[in-house]
């Protein structure tokens, strides 16, 4: 954009600092709004409770191997531990998409205009928006960590640090994706459409609630998943995000451990670029 030359007349020219502060203001607005949105907060807390405490504990006994009649865990973790990182991803998905949907609100209720007639270049408006949404989503993702002890997931400072980084990358990529979708969906169809058409399919197809290789739980060794299902899981980028989180929190990877972070970074770059192309047109 040709829109960031220093002004000679205004004492507060749009220097790098002023532009950075502008991004900060947009980021801060997202955080304030999220903190005041009680519905979103309730969702962010109840979702992990449901998935970890109810589904996780409920299915825990079925995720095991039987060796010569003896019931024991063949694999070095329980079902609870297995889905725990995936629930982090789920919480992030919901929150990211929700904050992207707020873009539709902004458009509907005019606030977007206030930002678009400001001297901020559009790419920075979008950056602030996505960073804000991503920060909120990352915080919601880390809410799940509170349940770590119930799921027997050990938490170390190092795993939290790297975990937050992975969560942030996933949040950033997904918020960009959400913006990309939101700028095509002009009407207020509501969040239900998003959650059913985007979030849940991506979540279920990310090897989040079952391992890609059924042989992991010995009892199912005879079963092989149909090719179409394996294919869908393999092309879903969320699969690799979940794998990276799993590698970090429980030390288990189904793919090359480097693949996860690479896919996450690629998601961020590609989705943000596409979102920008759409957003620029307005």
């Amino acid at each position: 954009m040709n829109s960031a030359p220093a002004s000679t007349e205004e004492t507060s020219g749009p220097g790098v600092v002023a532009l950075a502060l502008g991004v900060y203001a947009i980021w801060l607005r997202e955080l304030k709004r999220a903190a005041r949105d009680r519905g979103q907060l309730i969702g962010g807390i109840s979702r992990p409770l449901l998935w970890v405490l109810i589904l996780g504990i409920g299915l825990n006994p079925y995720f095991r191997g039987e060796v010569y009649g003896q019931v024991r865990f063949v694999i070095p973790f329980t079902y609870l531990q297995f889905i725990f990182p995936a629930v982090i991803a789920l919480n992030i998905m919901y929150t990211s998409v929700q904050s992207a949907v707020s873009l539709i609100w902004d458009r509907e209720f005019g606030f977007l205009r206030e930002v678009l007639v400001s001297p901020m270049p559009r790419v920075l408006v979008l950056l602030g928006k996505v960073l804000g949404g991503a920060t909120v989503a990352m915080l919601h993702g880390s809410l799940v960590l509170i349940l770590a002890r119930f799921a027997d997931v050990p938490i170390y400072p190092a795993s939290i640090g790297y975990g937050l980084l992975l969560m942030f990358l996933l949040s950033f990529g997904l918020t960009s994706l959400g913006v990309l979708i939101a700028s095509r969906v002009r009407s207020f169809e509501g969040f239900g459409v998003f959650s059913n058409a985007v979030i849940l399919p991506l979540y279920f197809l990310s090897s989040s609630i079952f391992p890609l290789d059924p042989a992991l739980s010995r009892a199912q060794a005879a079963i092989i998943y149909p090719e179409w299902l394996v294919f869908l899981i393999r092309i879903n980028p969320i699969t690799y995000a979940v794998d990276a989180l799993r590698g970090n929190f429980i030390g288990f990877n189904q793919f090359d451990p480097n693949l996860g972070p690479m896919v996450l970074v690629a998601m961020c770059v590609i989705f943000f670029a596409l979102a920008y192309l759409d957003f620029r047109r307005g």
């Binding site: 220097g15 900060y24 203001a25 607005r29 606030f111 205009r113 206030e114 007639v117 001297p119």
Partner: peptide, 30 residues
């Protein structure tokens, strides 16, 4: 930068306070 605009439809952020709306504008305009 030279324009102050009041749109026909309100473009305030209703979930922010009066002062936060003004402050937001000020920061974004440098």
């Amino acid at each position: 930068r030279k324009l102050g605009v009041v749109f026909q439809q309100s473009s305030l952020d209703t979930r922010l306070t009066v002062e936060e709306n003004l402050d937001f504008h000020g920061i974004v305009y440098g």
